[in-house]
Amino acid sequence: MKKEIICIVCPNSCRLTVSEQNGEIIVSGHECRRGLEHGISEYRDPRRMLTSTVAIDGGTLPRLPVISTAEIPRDKLRGCLEALYMVRVRAPVKGGDLIVEDICGTGVDIVASRSMSRTDDPQNDKEASG
């Protein structure tokens, strides 16, 4: 089976043609090694990064953005999102803090993608008065 895939690794957007011959995946149209790898993985097992938010108490905002530490199989994204809706954390949080370990058995962690201080942190006001 031949598949046309537009590479999303970088803005070059190479048009890849991926096919399988005798169990071997053949990619053409890529300009770099990462494109080649993307063609193979997109053909075999499409994966995407997961970014969303979780509820946070006591923070300067009500939502904390989070990101997966690696790509997650595309068909598992929905289940992972549902799991994230249930999560509630407490400020302060530092960017990179672990939020969910091994989400939905994917082997991928979910981490905070920013730091967030507490609303009552005096640092917030100190900065403003410089």
Binding site: P65, I67, G95, S113
Partner: peptide, 26 residues
């Protein structure tokens, strides 16, 4: 911008907007 795709040229990584900002803020 909580989605990823930031910093591909600069850091050779696909960071989220927040992560990209955090590097500079820190």
């Amino acid at each position: 911008c909580i989605h990823d795709g930031f910093g591909i040229h600069r850091f050779n990584k696909r960071l989220s907007g927040n992560q990209y900002a955090q590097l500079f803020i820190d």
